[in-house]
Design a protein around this nucleic acid. Structure first.
Lengths: 345, 345
DNA sequence: TTGTAGGCGTTATCAA
DNA sequence: TTGATAACGCCTACAA
């Protein structure tokens, strides 16, 4: 037909290419569908000649297996679901990036779900996830409702929790102790001769746990009770500026601040400079996260570094092992953290 | 059985609950599988009594549909694939977050793939994507190999490209003109009386396109040729510091700098302060991205704001419309951009 | 080494 | 309004 089509796009609903099936490849190659399947899944058991023939047919037809059919038949979806509070906010980003890459390397894909900072919609999210029958679920920085945890657990899908070390893990855990972070930062600051500690944090559970440990440790070391201010997550630079102002107005004797994110710490540094407060002379500042800008600030920011990519890669390893039913060396992996000392303390 | 199990976790490989099928629900409810299916998909055509009976059976069994079977039978996966260069780097984050949320709202899930800044592994990624038979693909900030573009196109899967306005879109486009950004920023700086412009950018295609337009426009407005420095993506704060130093050493007469990201611009601000250069007195600085910290810097950063969440939400709308075969009001949506004027210019 | 039969869980279609 | 039947594309199990 030489007629021109005025509007070609809406017309083609499905490409022919995507509808190529095993059978089509088989008939092109002159073998049965099973042989094609075996060439794809266990080529070693097939003579080289047949393999070549089939490979040629696959190439010429542009065949790509339909993973829904594979999943249905084999009960293996090669899909991993990740749940995180929100994609907005850079904290978990490296982890998710490394997780995605680590899964791709192993032949798995990642499906993402945002649970939000509230529990709203979490139920629907969990239904959506279970409906996909993922081979594993990676939980990152989320506290689920009891009902949500129960359903996830009841689904029997392997679960890896990350970015935390809780007392009662569902199964596998890759993270670090927020209690240890709070304790070590307070020890660090006390070691620097600081007398009146403060914390500015986001109002999430982990930040609160760091605070509890930070405060307890400071008191144990003989200091007066530290003070804290919490801002609504996600905590941003502007919150740091405002909160420092309010904090110092009420507690002018504070000489060290632990911020629950580097973004907050940057706000604190900027506000301190605006107020003519010397850092670290009058005020020591410690961040959390070691974002890529933190080393370049002026003064460079002392902060707690978490190896996000490592958590992602380990989570990929663990969840795939679980998915394959392989034994895991360890069920609880503590990746630790580092206090990176720079000019702000 | 009252026997306690010493180690419950490794034992249960699959939960019973996840193996509940339509048939199980049907037999509990005393109806056929088709009736259960209809209650789920078209409850209006079923009498209220039957619906109630079936709903009760669903609740008591904990049934969740198997989407692999649904996809296989109906050729609708309710899955959208997103391809982006890398999750590391905050630029596309808001877009992906809004996309994920917008899709969830419409009953779709997002699968993410990282194409990397190189073309390596892109072929495998595309195979993985096609294998899932997603109902749509959202491309963000990636330039594909010709072969990759060809395969994606040949798959017949609807495609939405974002974060750009190219001359030859594959199908639907949600973005803005990088040429317009370059041009408008140069006009803006010239309007401020700046005489010698410079640009510090990442070495990606879009940044280069902004540069070309920036330089051309500056010359058209009678200025001498702007100078540029490019750093390896992802561009970070430290790159901004170093590059500014090198740039000013060679071109001390530069009085305005357009940075291809706010992170770079922050580096430039910090380095300028370290060198005692007055911003904006001696040097005007413009960023790109309007990250959440930019308004809080000192001086606050003039920057180009892109509405990332809006792009994500529109992309969700467009790709779902395409997936459902619904007509689209517009195939090319220009979300534009805003030059947010602050103290750094 | 290769092929045949059957079923995974769901929905389109037709029949009652 | 409801049900029976078949088929989506693939892989497990068994046979040749």
């Amino acid at each position: 037909m030489s007629r021109t089509r005025p509007n070609p796009l809406p017309v083609q609903t499905q490409s022919p290419h995507i509808r190529v099936t095993l059978k089509d490849v088989a008939s092109v190659a002159g073998v049965s569908a099973m042989t094609v399947s075996r060439v794809l899944n266990a080529p070693d058991s097939i003579p080289a000649g047949t393999v070549a023939k089939v490979r040629a047919a696959i190439a010429s037809t542009g065949y790509v297996p339909n993973s829904a059919a594979q999943a249905l038949r084999s009960s293996k979806s090669r899909l991993i679901a990740a749940v995180l509070p929100t994609l907005t906010g850079p904290i978990f980003l490296d982890t998710i990036g490394a997780l995605t890459a680590g899964l791709a390397k192993r032949g798995y894909q990642l499906m993402v779900g945002q649970s939000g900072y509230s529990a709203t919609g979490e139920d629907q999210l969990i239904t959506d996830i279970i409906s996909r029958r993922p081979d594993g679920i990676v939980l990152t920085g989320v506290v689920h409702t009891d009902e949500g945890r129960r359903r996830l657990l009841a689904s029997g899908i392997p679960i890896v929790e990350t970015w935390d070390l809780t007392a009662d893990p569902l199964d596998v855990l890759v993270g670090f102790s927020h209690e240890a972070v709070g304790r070590e930062v307070s020890r660090f600051l006390v070691g620097k001769g600081r007398k009146k500690l403060a914390l500015i944090g986001a109002d999430d559970v982990r930040s609160k746990r760091r605070w509890a440990s930070f405060a307890k440790s400071a008191r144990a070391l003989g200091l007066s009770a530290p003070v804290a201010r919490f801002v609504t997550a996600p905590a941003m630079l502007g919150d740091g500026r405002q909160t420092l102002r309010a904090l110092l107005a009420e507690h002018p004797d504070v000489d060290a601040i632990f911020c629950s994110s580097d973004a907050l710490a940057l706000g604190v540094l900027i506000e301190a400079r605006a107020q003519g407060i010397d850092v670290p002379g009058q005020l020591a500042v410690v961040g959390f996260g070691d974002l890529n800008f933190s080393a370049q600030l002026d003064p460079a920011l002392t902060t707690v570094r978490i190896d996000g990519p490592r958590i992602g890669e380990l989570a990929a390893h663990c969840i795939v092992s679980r998915a394959l039913g392989q034994p895991l060396e360890e069920r609880i992996i503590d990746v630790g953290f580092t206090i990176v000392e720079r000019a702000s303390t």
